[in-house]
């Protein structure tokens, strides 16, 4: 008996915290983020309904069928019921999977229809480096053998390449608002992960691979980027910020930085 009330109480508390609690997603800053939230909310309503129904039923059965000396009904099952709930859950669950594929495809499969700002990303234990082509619009040649953090060459830029001279290197990532950005994610030691909560995207950086990731931020501001794949003892300190700026500010910043690096 007590168990029934405890089950119901916990269900009510979980419902309350989900509906009214302060702990929730930050507001999305991209169209993808808004779509993610919409899908998540739909899913939450359906699974929430199943959750409540199952816990209510469980509690009800506990109260209703508590032993009062009655004789239990001898039933070994019901094939019609089995068929019904098997097909119902199959349709529902597989429907979920298919419904969400559109959002997944928009991040990873859709071809870009506009030119994207390309940023080279190279992660290492335990910091981030972002590289933009300078005024010449070209990324310079790199080689791992030139990598040297103490001389400020985390990408291993080849000094002999003229295109490398004006590359802008930054430990935070700055992007212009409402512009399609394509990151080329790489890691030079272990697996790291690029995660921006407000964009609702997350991607591993795997050594030996270059993984593209596209997004378009639609709101100016500063957003945190916590490394989200265990990378060693400094994992919890591996953090950078995404700064979404107006187009003018971004261009000015890039030119200023390009001048400095030369």
């Amino acid at each position: 008996m007590g168990l029934a009330f405890l089950v119901w109480l916990l269900t009510a508390v979980i419902l309350y915290l989900t509906a009214r609690g302060p702990w929730w997603f930050p507001a999305p800053i991209s169209q993808h983020g808004a779509e993610f939230d919409k899908h998540f909310t739909t899913l939450l309503w359906i699974t929430g309904a199943i959750f409540v129904a199952a816990q209510l039923l469980l509690g009800y059965a506990i109260v209703r069928f508590k032993s009062r000396g009655q004789y239990a009904t001898h039933s070994e099952g019901n094939n019609k019921l089995e068929l019904l709930w098997t097909s119902a859950t199959a349709i529902l669950f597989i429907g979920f999977a298919l419904a969400a594929n559109g959002i997944w495809a928009s991040v990873h499969l859709d071809q870009a229809t506009e030119a994207a700002l390309k940023i080279d990303v190279l992660a290492k234990q335990f910091s981030w480096n972002f590289r933009y082509p300078g005024p010449d619009g070209k990324l310079g040649r790199t080689d791992v053998k030139f990598i040297n953090d103490s001389t400020g060459n985390p990408f291993g830029l080849d000094e002999k390449d003229p295109a490398a001279k004006d590359d802008v290197i930054s430990s935070t990532i700055r992007v212009p608002v409402n512009t399609l950005v394509e990151l080329n994610l790489r890691s030079r030691d272990v697996i790291h992960n690029f995660f921006v909560r407000e964009l609702r995207i997350k991607q591993d950086l795997v050594p030996g691979m270059t993984i593209p990731l596209r997004f378009k931020a639609q709101k100016e501001g500063t957003y945190e980027v916590p490394c989200s794949e265990l990378c060693g003892l400094g994992h919890h300190q591996m953090r950078t910020t995404l700064i979404v700026m107006s187009n003018e500010d971004f261009t000015r910043w890039l030119v200023d930085e390009g001048r400095k690096s030369r």
Binding site: F36, H39, L43, T47, F96, A100, N193, R197, K202
Partner: peptide, 15 residues
């Protein structure tokens, strides 16, 4: 059911 969908896991992985 949430984590089994890549679109949702895009946010929840490793949280």
């Amino acid at each position: 059911l949430f984590l089994g969908q890549p679109a949702i896991d895009l946010y929840f992985h490793d949280t």
